[in-house]
Design a protein around this nucleic acid. Structure first.
Lengths: 203, 203
DNA sequence: ACCTGAACACCGTTCAAGT
DNA sequence: ACCTGAACACCGTTCAAGT
C-alpha cells in the first residue's frame, strides 16, 4: 500500500503499473494479486488509506457548518497533495473512501436540522459537488506537474477562450480574464458555501 | 465519429479500441490517426458531438432558472443515454463539451442577476455538481448494463451498507433503506435546486 | 499460506511504404 | 493528401510451479 502511494505521488497515476510495483517491492505480480483482487481495488484501497486519515482529523469540529467546511477542505487538500485521489474518487462512487465522506457530510447535514426525507439528497448533492471538483482538479494536475507552469497553463487556456466566437461564447470570453489569477481553493469554498446557503434557506 | 459513438453506445467505453474501430470501418489505424491526434481527442470529439446537440436544444427557454433546469436535465439525459459521456466529461474539464455547458450555465447565471465578481464561482459550482453526478452516474452504468439488475445492484449496495458498524456509520446505515428505491433524476434535480436556492439567497 | 515469473491476450501509437 | 498494416513498447491478469 505504502509502495503504491509512493509511486503514485512521485510519478502520477499512469506510473502505477504492476511491473513498477513489483520492481519497487522486488517481488512477482502474483504476490500482489494474492493480496488484492485487481488494480481497481489497489487504487481504491490506496485512496481509502489517505481519506480515512483526513476524516478522523475533521471529526473534532462541533459546529456542523464549520465541520462541513473542514471536512471538504480536508478532501480538497488531500487531492492537492495526491492528485491521483481526485480521479479515483470521481471514478467510483461506492468505494470505501466515498462512503467515509458521505458519512461525515451526512452526519453534519443531519445536525444542521435538514428534514429526514431531504437528508439523502442534500448529503449526496454536497458529495457530488466535491467529487466533481475532485475530477476537475485531478485533470488539471495531470496537465501541469509543477505549480510553476500551472499559471502558464491557465494562461494558455484563457488565451484560447478569448479567441472563441463572441456571439457563441460571450460568457466564457468574459471569465477568461479571471481564469489565470483565480484561486482553486476559494472557488471550491464558494461552491460549498452556495450549497450550505441553499440548505439553510430550504430549511 | 458516428462509428465510434455506435461502438461506445453498444458495448461501453472499454469496447472502443482502435482495433475495434478499424475493423468496424474496414480501414487501418493510421487512417484514424490522420484525422485525430489520439484516443483522448477521439473521446472528446464524440462527447462534444452529443453535448452540442443537447445545448442548442436547451437554448429556447427564456426564464433563466428554467433554462438551467432544462440544460442540466439535458446533460443528465445525455449521460443516461450514453453513459460513457459521464466518464469523459468528468475526466477533462477543459474539453469543448464542458465549455459549451459552462457557456450555457454561465449565461443564465448572468441573467439571474448574480454580481459580476461571483459569476465565475457560481457557474463553475453548478458545473462541478453536474460533472460530479456525471462521473457517479457513469460509474453506476459500468456496473449495471441493463436497468433490470440496477435495482438488484442498488439492493446489494444497500445490504452492504446496513452491515456497517452502527457506531461508525450511523448516517449511511440510515440512508441505506432509501437507496434501492431512490430516483436518480429526482436526486439530481434536488441538487440543482439546492444550488439555485443558494444563488437566489446570496443575491 | 504465500510467492515466482513466464505466458497470454490484449492495448495505444508509430512509421515506412503505398496510392 | 490520405491510407495500409506490421511492428513497437507497453499493459493487466493468470496460473503452473515452487517454498
Amino acid at each position: 500500500m505504502e509502495a503504491a502511494i509512493e509511486i503514485l505521488d512521485k510519478d502520477g497515476e499512469d506510473a502505477l503499473t504492476f511491473r513498477a510495483l513489483t520492481a519497487h517491492l522486488a517481488t512477482g505480480s502474483g504476490a500482489i494479486y494474492w493480496h488484492v483482487a485487481d488494480k481497481h481495488e489497489l487504487l481504491a484501497a490506496a485512496t481509502d488509506h489517505i481519506i480515512a486519515r483526513v476524516m478522523t482529523e475533521a471529526v473534532k469540529e462541533p459546529n456542523p457548518q464549520d465541520a462541513i467546511h473542514t471536512l471538504a477542505m480536508g478532501v480538497f487538500d488531500a487531492i492537492d497533495a495526491h492528485p491521483w485521489i481526485g480521479s479515483q474518487l470521481s471514478r467510483d462512487p461506492w468505494q470505501d473512501a466515498v462512503l467515509r465522506i458521505l458519512e461525515g457530510v451526512g452526519g453534519r447535514v443531519q445536525a444542521l436540522g435538514v428534514p429526514k426525507q431531504d437528508q439523502f439528497n442534500t448529503a449526496t448533492a454536497l458529495i457530488s459537488f466535491i467529487l466533481g471538483i475532485a475530477g476537475q482538479y485531478a485533470a488539471s494536475a495531470r496537465f501541469v506537474a509543477s505549480n510553476a507552469n500551472r499559471t502558464e497553463h491557465l494562461g494558455a487556456v484563457a488565451a484560447k477562450w478569448e479567441q472563441l466566437d463572441p456571439a457563441e461564447y460571450p460568457f466564457v470570453r468574459q471569465v477568461a480574464k479571471i481564469l489565470p489569477g483565480h484561486d482553486d481553493r476559494e472557488q471550491f469554498l464558494a461552491g460549498i458555501n452556495l450549497i450550505l446557503t441553499g440548505i439553510e434557506r430550504a430549511r
